[in-house]
């Protein structure tokens, strides 16, 4: 895997579990990331987002005080969002299909299942760097293009005017 110098990238880690935050911080520091801010709730994450600029946010979904969906909604949908196109990595132990689809439809950039390792986390970061997708705005969605693959033999109903 290509090595990137991540020293100039700033991360916001959102998780209500302090030890989980320590794990993520430890992994990022091991990758030479130096700009790391922590938030222990969705509410605190939104305060930090108003105060500072970040390059990537890594957020848990299930938190006691304000869940991760609220954070994604505020980033993608709020008129006062400081950066509606901020890359969002959802980090969750809940890997039920409907949860992943819900996070995708809320506008997450990447999903990272717990337990996390340096390899899985770095892979998501590299995907964001190398494979950034265009954003799509529809009547009920704003976020990264949910089409990751181009299907040249797709035979189903067309959903976009340009299809």
């Amino acid at each position: 895997m290509q090595l990137y110098d991540l020293r100039g990238i700033s991360f916001l880690i959102v998780d209500d579990n302090r030890f989980m935050r320590r794990i993520i911080v430890g992994l990022l520091q091991g990758m030479d990331v130096t700009e790391i801010t922590e938030a222990r709730s969705g509410k605190q994450a939104l305060e930090k987002l108003r105060q500072n600029q970040f390059d990537v946010i890594i957020t848990d979904l299930e938190m006691e005080d304000g869940n991760g969906f609220g954070v994604i909604d505020a980033i993608r949908g709020d008129d006062e969002s400081p950066d509606p196109m901020l890359p969002i990595i959802v980090l969750s132990a809940n890997t039920m299909k409907h949860t992943i689809l819900q996070a995708r439809d809320a506008g997450m950039t990447e999903f990272l299942a717990k337990p996390v390792t340096a390899d899985t986390l770095y892979r998501r970061i590299v995907t964001i760097i190398e494979g950034a997708r265009s954003f799509v705005r529809t009547g009920n969605y704003f976020g990264p293009d949910r089409r990751r693959k181009s299907d040249t033999v797709y035979m189903g109903p067309k959903r976009r005017r340009d299809d």
Partner: peptide, 12 residues
């Protein structure tokens, strides 16, 4: 069918 594609500046 109504949608808009916005280029991602990919600051990272």
């Amino acid at each position: 069918s109504k949608f808009e594609i916005i280029e991602n500046p990919n600051k990272i």
